[in-house]
């Protein structure tokens, strides 16, 4: 097949599938949360409530798209687009199966980190442009939180980079043929999981939204599809982080018997469910606790992990 056509098809699939899965995640999350809280969740619209997603989408598209008169209009409009763009850009480097990636860059991992660090702007600018106290507080919290968790997110991944010897994600997957990196890099995995939670603002770390204190934090003033874009962006982030955990620590597409893409999807789905379980189980920490954990526990641990990994790699080198 023509390589350009092939990469266009992959590009289309990479944009199309995560967007739809993200919408489906709304259903999955509500059903799973209900399961763990001894409820049923949405089960009326269609079989198992599957059409609930469709109903929600129709509803959100027909909501009034309201820009508050006191808001900073251009920034207010750009902010939700930024998160969609940055998260979707990150999908270009994810290796779904051997050869099935839009751009197999030699700095793939750094590209992912760069895009996730740009994602902060969406939240911060949304909070600022809304010109509301709650939104501003949410934006401030988001910038502080994501900045500090990004630091050791990058550092926690450097262990895998050391072991694989490359920033290219397909190389990292290939390097896990004999042993998943979760075994030598267990600490790195835990750190990345926590940092990923903080980056996607999922429940134990959803302080920028914090319904009980800040109404809805940075998106208090948003409505209609702009709000929907934040929502979809969050779910896209969850899928992305799950996919990255799969790629970096759990051997990506590798596994016996089944085709590679199935293994990838199964592993990713497992981590998505883990994310939802964390949301179901854990309460939100206080903001100063969050920051001091980040800087006083996570960062030293990440540095230690990097140091030990580096020493071991150096010692084991022939």
């Amino acid at each position: 097949m023509n390589p350009i056509v092939k990469s266009l098809i992959i590009l289309f699939l990479v944009i199309f599938i995560p967007l739809n899965v993200a919408a489906g995640l709304i259903w999955l999350e509500r059903r799973l949360l209900a399961l763990w809280q001894d409820r049923y969740g949405p089960n009326r619209v269609g079989p198992f409530g599957l059409l609930q997603v469709l109903a929600d989408m129709i509803k959100i598209f027909f909501k009034e798209d309201w820009i508050p008169p006191f808001a900073d209009k251009p920034v207010f409009v750009i902010a939700p687009a930024v998160i969609m763009v940055t998260v979707l850009m990150s999908y270009t480097v994810v290796p779904w199966a051997p050869g099935a990636t839009v751009a197999d860059m030699n700095i793939g991992l750094l590209f992912f980190l760069a895009m996730s660090s740009l994602g902060v702007y969406s939240i911060v600018l949304a909070g600022w442009a809304s010109a509301s106290k709650y939104s501003l507080l949410g934006g401030l919290r988001a910038s502080a939180q994501m900045l500090s968790y990004e630091v050791f997110m990058g550092l926690s991944l450097m262990g895998t980079v050391l072991l694989a010897g490359s920033f290219r994600l397909s190389d990292i997957v290939a390097a896990q043929r004999h042993m998943w990196f979760v075994i030598p890099q267990f600490l790195g995995f835990i750190l990345f999981l926590i940092a990923g939670l903080a980056e996607t603002r999922r429940l134990p770390f959803d302080l920028p939204e914090a319904e009980s204190e800040l109404v809805a934090g940075f998106h208090s003033e948003y409505s209609g599809m702009k709000f929907g874009m934040f929502f979809v962006g969050e779910y896209l982030g969850v899928i992305l982080i799950s996919a990255m955990i799969t790629v970096l620590f759990f051997g990506g597409w590798q596994g016996p018997w089944l085709p590679p893409i199935v293994w990838f999807v199964v592993k990713t789905l497992f981590f998505i469910c883990l994310f939802i379980l964390l949301r179901a189980a854990l309460p939100r920490p206080r903001f100063d606790q969050l920051m001091s954990w980040g800087w006083k526990i996570m960062l030293p641990l990440a540095l230690l992990n990097l140091l030990v990994t580096g020493a071991v790699v150096l010692a084991a080198r022939p």
């Binding site: 660090s117 902060v120 702007y121 600018l125 934006g139 910038s143 900045l147």
Partner: peptide, 8 residues
């Protein structure tokens, strides 16, 4: 981000 933070 820090700059934006301070300006905010």
């Amino acid at each position: 981000v820090l700059f934006v933070f301070v300006v905010m």
